[in-house]
Write a protein that binds this DNA or RNA. Structure first.
Lengths: 342, 342
DNA sequence: CTGAAAGCGCTTACAG
DNA sequence: CTGAAAGCGCTTACAG
């Protein structure tokens, strides 16, 4: 006999299929004694349920929403594309995925988005947004309705989210620092840092990691105060330009946020295209080109494809009440050089 | 109406379910005109078949074999564990996976293994072995029997394998070189290279990539002739020891093969634990510890878990005649430092 | 509290 | 060359 099925359990326990099903799915209204008989048969026969048959019978589909910021950046673009790509593949796994672009910083817009999600009876939500009280509350509300929730890119550690899909940003900052420091090879000089805003947790964490390694390991390098580029090319170009013009012995720049095009423009306009050690975040069309031309030396990447797929897998596993393969869902801090560009 | 099903096709085409099934599965014995009618209905209704329902009806299971060398190394160990881990998860996807450890360098043993595989009616094989004529032939034979075949770690470019699951070793060598070169920061000195054997294609490719970048970008560094460690700790320790004792201004070592424990021992015995730039391959218990203690500076890694899962996914997709997500199956050249250790 | 029967979307003998 | 009926392993009204 092959793998045992519900029929085998029914026979072994001396009950009907319907009762086996009730017990298997923890539905109420079965006598304790009967429950015990069925559970007994299950463990005696080593029964393990065929989820795809169950889903077929139940005509189950999983409905997930990816709630992303409505701002634009090349990374967000890449993430959006990755979600669409995952969507196509997951259709076959009975998952329907919708992407919602929302002004996540605006509490009213955020509330409206969550209202829509609740009304639509969604099974799982992956949300990328800064931590706010509104967001924390709405995640909590979703959890009372048994909706699976994962935080994307930016963790929501004080919320009830089931899982975080993203990198450890302190470690990312440390990684950026050690590469900058080692590439400097003992030379003395100044290092600049650009972030979006020091209000964003990710940026603060990256800066902390960066400073810590610099302090411990590279006394020859001086890290200057943080510049804020506000995710904007023009702004980034301006602050970096001013920084370069007013400091003589700059040997490196760590770009922890977006606005990378402003950074490379500022460097190129000053003929510094391949003079400085430049470490930036996230592999995009632009950063790929900058790596190839040598303007950027290192890209610290969080793989958008992996993040999209991981989020979907985790949401589905949460709905099914099964475990994920932990190592598969761990988002790596990828170090990308011109030589190992994928 | 939801997604169309076989019933809808049957009605629309004015035929029975059995006939729809015949056409859908390209079975012979249907009049051309009938085939056309069904295909027409399919495209008109935008029918897409439910693979899991089909697999249920057909009681389909996929039987895959991972054919691995019977030699031992920490990487092989990690790969083996990764396959077992993937196996557990894939049970739910109707995949049965068996790992065969075979003396892949011995033609007789290899032939016997393939005989067993053919006799057992396996659906797909992932094979890790050096290129040999015997292997090429047997892969060809499997393909005539419609068995899916992927090459693991070492490509079999002249065979009829369906896919290669592994990294570009020339690029890996280039990556090792650029990190060694940049960490050297302009200093002059000698660089040693240890491989298993220059008979192995991977090793040759890594050496080629390494030399090329060194030649182009780092004239201050002199790369010395290759040492061969034969995948053996004692041997590796001996050749590296001799190398260190007979060369004065060594500033780095690239360990492209296994036997890493011999390497770190040779270094530590001479008090060079954190003096040299050391780049090695593959993340294992030992290399992780060596990264943490600083004896090794960089590990170039091919993710064993990713490789195992990718191989299984590709085999299954091949059996089902569906596409994979290319970016997901691309094995990355991971750069691992102490700071971004997973 | 429990069971008989029909159904999810597909495939498979078997009969004609 | 084609179709009616039963079945894959599970779930769902409905009836009792």
């Amino acid at each position: 006999m092959g793998k045992p099925t519900v029929h085998d359990i029914a026979r072994e326990a001396g009950v009907s299929l319907a009762t086996v099903d009730r017990v298997l799915n923890d539905r109420a209204g079965v006598r304790e004694k009967t429950v015990a008989r069925v559970r007994d048969a299950v463990s005696r026969l080593g029964y393990v349920r065929d989820l795809s048959a169950a889903n077929l019978a139940r005509q189950r589909r999983y409905r997930f929403v990816f709630l992303l910021p409505d701002t634009t950046s090349q990374f967000l673009h890449a993430l959006h594309d990755a979600v669409l790509e995952a969507t196509a593949a997951l259709q076959l796994d009975r998952c329907d995925i919708e992407v919602m672009h929302v002004s996540v910083g605006d509490p009213v817009a955020l509330m409206a988005a969550f209202d829509r999600i609740e009304a639509a009876g969604i099974d799982g939500v992956a949300v990328m947004a800064s931590e706010t009280p509104v967001l924390r509350d709405r995640i909590g509300r979703l959890k009372t309705q048994d909706v699976a929730v994962v935080a994307l890119i930016t963790d929501q550690p004080n919320s009830e989210r089931d899982h975080f899909v993203g990198i450890d940003n302190v470690a990312a900052g440390r990684t950026a620092a050690v590469l900058t420091g080692r590439f400097a090879g003992g030379r003395e000089g100044k290092i600049g840092i650009v972030v979006n805003s020091m209000m964003a947790r990710d940026m603060v964490e990256r800066r902390i990691g960066f400073d810590r390694v610099m302090g411990e390991g590279f006394p020859n390098l001086t890290v200057l105060p943080t510049m804020e580029g506000r995710d904007d090319h023009a702004m980034t170009e301006r602050v970096v330009g001013q920084f370069l013009d007013s400091n003589s012995d700059v040997i490196g720049i760590y770009c922890a946020g977006a606005g990378m095009r402003g950074l490379t423009k500022a460097l190129e306009d000053r003929g510094l295209g391949d003079k400085l050690i430049v470490v930036a975040h996230d592999l995009t069309q632009h950063s790929r080109a900058a790596l190839e031309s040598g303007v950027i030396d290192v890209v610290i990447n969080q793989n958008a494809g992996h993040i999209a797929r991981s989020a979907a897998r985790v949401l589905k596993a949460q709905c099914d009440g099964v475990d994920v393969i932990a190592s598969q869902e761990k988002i790596r801090i990828e170090i990308v050089l011109r030589e190992n560009l994928p």
